[in-house]
């Protein structure tokens, strides 16, 4: 269906990531730059086996 009203950005499917996630290889949030706050959305996934 061609859409005229809505453009969807390319995003990771979080529900699907439940199946293969949790490898733990990604950066620990506070090690990067902040040191006084927490945000995890800016961490890149480093799971070499992720399928979704």
């Amino acid at each position: 269906m061609e859409r005229k009203h809505i453009v969807s950005l390319k995003t990771r499917n979080l529900c699907a990531s439940a199946a293969n996630g949790g490898c733990g290889e990604c950066q620990t949030s506070c090690q990067s730059a902040c040191k006084t706050s927490c945000g995890i959305a800016n961490q890149k996934c480093e799971n070499s086996k992720k399928a979704e």
Partner: peptide
């Protein structure tokens, strides 16, 4: 800008999003 580095297509899995920074456990 560090806090605007949002990777929508290849960001963290749901495990990370629920678990957080790992303080007291992984960190």
């Amino acid at each position: 800008f560090y806090h605007y580095m949002l990777d929508l297509a290849d960001g963290p899995c749901i495990y990370k999003r629920i678990s957080g920074c790992g303080s007291g456990t992984e960190y």
